[in-house]
Nucleic acid binder design. Structure first.
Lengths: 165, 165
DNA sequence: CTCTTTGTTCGGAACGTTCCGAACAGCATA
DNA sequence: TATGCTGTTCGGAACGTTCCGAACAAAGAG
């Protein structure tokens, strides 16, 4: 059973493979493991050992992507940052845009290759497959939401009703 | 309606965002638009303007990932390369392993945070969501295969029966 | 107003990755 | 054996990205 620090480093590696920067990934890890109601930039700088300029860029990148949100408690001097309510939903929707992008890439290819049958068949398969995924992925997300709601609030009102296990 | 060369460059950019190198992505583009039964390394070098050493590395990377396959026609002096039959299926399965990886990352986090309720709830949600996706994604792939088979070979035997449109 | 703190922007340095050219190994042919 | 071609491996250069430190803008406290 590892430490929180190890988990934060793992998160940095994992999210880096998704296109984020290393420090952005580590920030996500800190916020995932956060026990309070968010962290502030100076605290994250000290904890992760990065300059506040890098932290500023990372936090803005994450905020721009909709993964975290910035808020300032009343009368506070510094911003706080916490994960968006549906971080994971947003991550999945980002995947979906990737699907549509590849469908469009296939379309571009179809416009370029002309009438050659073999190439057309390949690219049409690619286009149709990614279009199918882009169409079905949101429904999968809906099914997940439904299943989660069903487990979290079963009609018999069992002990599982508490969303905080 | 763009040229094939433009499509190849676009493919290089798109697949680069998926973790491949730029030249590997361009090779994929060439093979997607290929009208014959595969291309050889010297031809790809001349067409893309890269050294044969880079081409060797790129082709081996793609072959190792199962995206292309190498074969040598009888009595031929050089290898030929073509896309695997189910390139896209493999790409999707690679995505699936990414899901399970994130579920495991959440598990690691659960082992690290201890009993803090808010952090546990977040990480359990993350774990369950990615596990759900890892479980349902193969079924989505199966549904696609079924739909494609139904469209390509309808029971009435219409003109769409030819897989090469 | 002055001082402190927070947050952003910018230029330069450090890092990792990708690519090229050269050298090498394998193989078939003459 | 000698020769030409294919493919791989390796060291160094070039490139893009990320990060840091310094300078700057904004806002509140004394």
């Amino acid at each position: 059973m590892g430490t929180v620090e190890e988990f934060v480093e793992s998160a940095g590696l994992y999210f880096e493979r998704l296109g984020l920067s290393r420090t952005s990934g580590r920030v996500i890890g800190c916020l995932l493991a956060d026990t309070g109601e968010g962290l502030d930039a100076p605290g994250l700088c000290g904890r992760l050992g990065v300059a506040k300029s890098s932290m500023s860029v990372a936090l803005r990148q994450l905020e721009h992507g909709g993964l975290i949100e910035r808020y300032r408690p009343p009368r506070a001097r510094r911003d706080h940052h916490r994960l968006t309510e549906d971080v994971f939903g947003r991550a999945f929707r980002a995947k979906m845009t990737e699907f549509t992008a590849f469908a469009e890439l296939a379309e571009q290819g179809l416009g370029a290759v002309g009438g050659h049958p073999a190439a057309r068949a390949r690219l049409e398969l690619m286009r149709d497959m990614y279009a199918f995924m882009a169409r079905e992925f949101p429904r999968l997300l809906d099914r997940w939401e439904a299943e989660r709601a069903g487990v979290a609030r079963p009609p018999d009102g069992s002990a599982a009703a508490d969303p905080l296990r």
